[in-house]
Design a protein around this nucleic acid. Structure first.
Lengths: 109, 109
DNA sequence: AAAATACATCGTAATATTGCGATAGCGAAA
DNA sequence: TTTCGCTATCGCAATATTACGATGTATTTT
């Protein structure tokens, strides 16, 4: 045991959970906010910005890249990361849909 | 090591991450969707609905309750769970804000 | 009162995540 | 070419999550 039983759930449920998981760490939120703020591509100053070790930062970047929400391209000696607008939009829409239709009044307990 | 270094990040970043964490499991997504769909309060049929053991289901419910997004009240022998509309709205707004202002065109790499 | 039902919690095993030092690989600069 | 800076990956330790059986605690039923 210990592993998530993904087969019990729908594809959509697993997808939403996977997206949420990508956002489920403050460092990754900070990275995304930084990338959004700078708009232009930013590279290794993330290490300095975050205060985490280089290896740790790289790992978080990798997870965000696997989730698809950011993309990186080699820029000489360094690597240029930025938001993947397409996937960003997907995230936005999925969460929007998820949160949308609830009758906020009807709290029964 | 191994523990998240929350002190490195802003309160808001930690908050968003914590919210995302609450959603970062398909069982919890399924629970929320079920509660939204039924609108009325639903109790222990969640165990049957999910296909997870009773203990596991209860644990997921606990996490959602700690996150504040659901609330439970004792209803005789069973417990009645439902969405907390206030917190649900907060989640919605926070994620909305987070995803809102990005220039989707400007993918530089 | 005893048995049954509905949940929560404890304890534990399996697995995943987080974090970092060390190291490897690659392009740039000297 | 050697050296340097930047990033990815490996290996490991600490911690967290997931899952479940067993057990405890109410309440309801018999």
């Amino acid at each position: 045991m210990g592993a998530t039983k993904t087969d019990l759930f729908t594809k959509q449920q697993n997808e939403i959970a996977a997206m949420a998981k990508a956002l489920a760490h403050p460092a990754r939120i900070a990275i995304l906010q930084y990338l959004v703020k700078k708009n232009a591509c930013v590279c290794g100053d993330l290490v300095e910005e975050l205060g985490l070790a280089q290896a740790t930062t790289s790992q978080h970047l990798k997870e965000l890249k696997i989730a698809g929400i950011i993309q990186g391209s080699i820029e000489g000696a360094s690597v240029c990361y930025c938001i993947n607008p397409k996937v960003w939009k997907q995230y936005k829409e999925l969460f929007n849909t998820f949160f949308k239709d609830v009758d906020l009044q009807a709290s029964c307990c």
